[in-house]
């Protein structure tokens, strides 16, 4: 099993995504994962469809985050694409049809074997507990800073 640091890279980070709604955010990160060969062509639509039924917005003690994802059949190689948003975008709260959360950080997951990627998921969720860290991450000015901040935070744990 490998932690989050094995699944992230500068190639899979989008800074200051400018999108009108949650689905356009998902599309941008989905396209990136597809271009790099991590997911199949069907992935992005599948993530959007799942987000409509089972939303993934989470309200933390820092900035709102979302973890869009879908079934393993759409995934070639596991990875986590990271996006910071220029302006907050409303996502529906996980497990809630009515409430929304202003999301500023996206972690879009390509998972092909949940039990294999448990450590990755755990370290990702571990990041959500540190609100100050999430605020810092949201303000990162470039891709390499995003990765460096995360690696430093993971090294602390």
């Amino acid at each position: 099993m490998k932690g989050l640091s094995s699944y992230i890279s500068e190639d899979l980070v989008l800074i200051h995504i400018d999108a009108e709604d949650e689905f356009l955010c998902i599309e941008q990160l989905g396209n990136l994962l597809y271009k790099k060969g991590f997911v199949k062509e069907t992935y992005t639509q599948a993530v959007i469809d799942r987000e409509k039924v089972y939303p993934t917005g989470l309200s933390t003690s820092g900035v709102g985050v979302a973890i869009p994802h879908t079934d393993a059949v759409h995934v070639n190689k596991p990875a986590v694409a990271i996006g910071t948003l220029k302006k907050p975008v409303l996502f529906h709260l996980m497990g809630d049809d009515e409430q929304t959360v202003e999301v500023q950080l996206l972690f879009q997951l390509a998972i092909n074997e949940p039990s294999e990627q448990l450590e990755m998921l755990q370290s990702l969720v571990g990041l959500f507990a540190d609100g100050e860290f999430l605020k810092c991450l949201q303000q990162a000015e470039d891709e390499s800073t995003v990765i460096a901040l995360i690696q430093a935070e993971l090294a602390k744990a």
């Binding site: 799942r50 994802h69 879908t70 079934d71 996980m94 998972i111 949940p114 448990l118 998921l121 755990q122």
Partner: peptide
């Protein structure tokens, strides 16, 4: 229990 049993329930179970 989570939506589709892919990501979140895996983490919650362990936690």
């Amino acid at each position: 229990a989570c939506g589709t049993g892919i990501a979140t329930s895996t983490v919650v179970v362990n936690k």
